[in-house]
Design a protein around this nucleic acid. Structure first.
Length: 343
DNA sequence: CAGATTTGACCTGT
DNA sequence: ACAGGTCAAATCTG
């Protein structure tokens, strides 16, 4: 426990440090005449850094109290064991990575149940052309597709590519909105315990802060997973017309003959410069990102409807800023300044 | 040939 | 029983 905590602490600190570094870089870039994309990218990463940091805090905060979020859509399962003593983040039902992984299904389903879950809404931009497959920084492998009752488009199921090799149980499902072709709901479940998340965008100028990844062993990793939050998605609109497609990303015209093919995998190696057409949707970005904001302002009624009807991307449970503040206010027990507020 | 998708069957929760 | 989620054999791609 001490180990895990100190690791968390480390992670938090390093995350914040990284955010600061990024902010510094951004500052530099503001003076120089750098591209908008570069800045966006930095902003993006800074936000992500914030997200992760807050997630850590939030998580610990939510352990003792279950927060209600605006809509029931948001199933924040981090605090599934709420009411009980906070332990270590990921080890929800006893044994984290030892026996539950190959053994009974019940354990697994239990595990899955308690996995954190949140949904993002991603809007496709039809203006920008799209190129390479860009993803949310993780490598996903499609394992299923289902027609959903009442939904126009099938839902696709993805799991982390490294599920077997690294015992990473993160999954996500993508569902195209019924009416608005440009909107996709992406529901993430579980958190990556693999070491492959979060593409490292080599900063154009100062790559000094690159070795963020310390040598963490697997156990720690499984906890590390906690914060791999990245909800970046880019989508191609060009093929949107094709009604068969559950969603547009289909760079290789998938073989076979069938409908959907969502494909966005592995490419964190490439300079993941999030530019043109991806929209990153997260509570923070909702507040800060012009693109997304426009989105919301675009058609208020329509969107509200969408948001409450579809899934709450707008108010992601996990890292909602107000939420954290609230949690701090409401929870005097949240030992922010205590050496170990996790235990 | 290894790894990713497709897709119908199977499983599980409501 | 049904809808949604997952498995896994067959198939495809690089």
């Amino acid at each position: 426990m001490e180990n895990s905590w100190s690791w968390e602490q480390k992670t938090l600190v390093s995350e914040l440090i990284q955010g600061m570094e990024l902010a510094k870089q951004l500052k530099i870039h503001m003076n120089t005449a750098s591209s908008v994309e570069t800045r966006d990218s930095l902003v993006q990463r800074i936000l992500t850094s914030y997200e992760k940091s807050l997630l850590i805090l939030n998580y610990s905060g939510s352990m003792g109290q279950q927060h209600q979020h605006q809509h029931h859509q948001l199933q924040q399962n981090f605090g599934a064991t709420a009411g009980t003593v906070p332990e270590s983040p990921i080890s929800m039902n006893g044994s984290p990575g030892s026996d539950d992984f190959d053994g009974g299904h019940s354990d697994i389903s239990k595990k899955r149940k308690t996995m954190p879950r949140w949904t993002d809404q991603v809007r496709v931009s039809s203006e920008n052309g799209l190129e390479g497959p860009h993803d949310d920084g993780y490598s996903w492998r499609k394992y299923g597709q289902k027609d959903i009752l009442g939904a126009k488009y099938p839902r696709s199921y993805y799991r982390c590519t490294y599920r077997n090799t690294q015992n990473c149980w993160a999954t996500k499902q993508v569902q195209r909105s019924d009416d608005d072709h440009t909107i996709f709901d992406i529901t993430y479940r579980g958190i990556h315990t693999c070491s492959h998340g979060q593409q490292q965008i080599p900063p154009p100028a100062s790559p000094e802060k690159q070795e963020q990844k310390q040598n963490i062993d697997q156990q720690q990793q499984s906890q590390a997973a906690l914060f791999n939050f990245q909800k970046v998605l880019r989508v191609n609109t060009e093929d949107l017309d094709n009604k068969e497609m559950a969603f547009p990303f289909s760079f290789p015209p998938t073989y076979g003959s069938t409908k959907t093919s969502g494909t966005y995998s592995q490419s964190f190696t490439s300079p993941a410069t999030p530019e043109s057409n991806y929209y990153s949707v997260s509570p923070f970005q909702m507040n800060n990102y012009a693109g997304v904001q426009n989105l919301q302002h675009h058609s208020e009624s329509g969107f509200t409807e969408l948001i409450s009807a579809n899934t709450s991307a707008a108010n992601s449970p996990i890292v909602e800023p107000d939420f954290s503040l609230q949690s701090l206010e409401l929870d005097p027990n949240f030992p922010f300044n205590t050496p170990g507020f996790f235990s």
